[in-house]
Amino acid sequence: ERVRARYDYEAQNEDELSFKKGDIITVLEKDDGWWKGRNGKEGLFPSNYVEELE
């Protein structure tokens, strides 16, 4: 599954994923509120910062 970033997100910890608004992220795992994904790097990000691609 792929999602698009709705906002910029700056990683707060080294296991998190940074991205810019409009970036496409491949979702690897979904957990409550935090998803694991890849966009060149791999890490956790808040699920409310992304939207599913149509």
Results as ranks from 00 to 15, higher is better:
1 E>T: 14
1 E>I: 15
2 R>I: 12
2 R>S: 09
2 R>E: 11
2 R>Q: 14
2 R>Y: 14
3 V>G: 04
3 V>I: 05
4 R>M: 10
4 R>G: 01
4 R>P: 01
5 A>S: 04
6 R>M: 14
6 R>S: 08
6 R>D: 02
7 Y>R: 13
7 Y>S: 08
7 Y>F: 14
8 D>F: 03
8 D>L: 03
9 Y>F: 07
9 Y>N: 04
9 Y>K: 03
9 Y>W: 07
10 E>G: 06
10 E>D: 13
11 A>S: 07
12 Q>G: 08
12 Q>Y: 05
13 N>L: 06
13 N>R: 12
14 E>Q: 12
14 E>G: 11
15 D>V: 08
15 D>G: 14
15 D>A: 13
16 E>K: 01
17 L>R: 01
17 L>V: 06
17 L>Y: 01
18 S>P: 04
18 S>C: 06
19 F>L: 08
20 K>D: 03
20 K>L: 09
20 K>N: 08
20 K>M: 09
21 K>M: 11
21 K>T: 10
21 K>D: 03
22 G>V: 03
22 G>W: 04
22 G>Q: 03
22 G>S: 05
23 D>C: 06
23 D>S: 07
23 D>W: 06
24 I>R: 03
24 I>L: 09
24 I>A: 02
25 I>A: 03
26 T>R: 06
26 T>M: 11
26 T>H: 10
27 V>D: 03
27 V>K: 02
27 V>F: 02
28 L>S: 05
29 E>H: 14
29 E>R: 10
29 E>N: 12
31 D>F: 15
31 D>H: 15
32 D>S: 12
32 D>M: 09
34 W>C: 11
34 W>D: 00
35 W>G: 00
35 W>S: 04
35 W>H: 00
35 W>N: 01
36 K>R: 15
36 K>I: 10
37 G>Y: 03
37 G>P: 01
37 G>M: 01
38 R>K: 11
38 R>W: 15
38 R>H: 12
39 N>K: 12
39 N>W: 10
40 G>Q: 10
40 G>C: 10
42 E>M: 12
42 E>A: 09
43 G>P: 02
43 G>R: 01
43 G>L: 00
43 G>E: 02
44 L>C: 11
45 F>E: 03
45 F>Y: 00
46 P>M: 07
46 P>V: 02
46 P>D: 07
47 S>N: 07
47 S>Q: 09
47 S>D: 06
48 N>Y: 13
48 N>S: 15
49 Y>K: 07
49 Y>P: 02
49 Y>C: 13
50 V>I: 09
50 V>H: 03
50 V>Q: 02
50 V>A: 07
51 E>G: 06
51 E>W: 06
51 E>Y: 07
51 E>K: 04
51 E>L: 05
52 E>D: 13
52 E>C: 11
52 E>H: 12
54 E>M: 12
54 E>N: 13
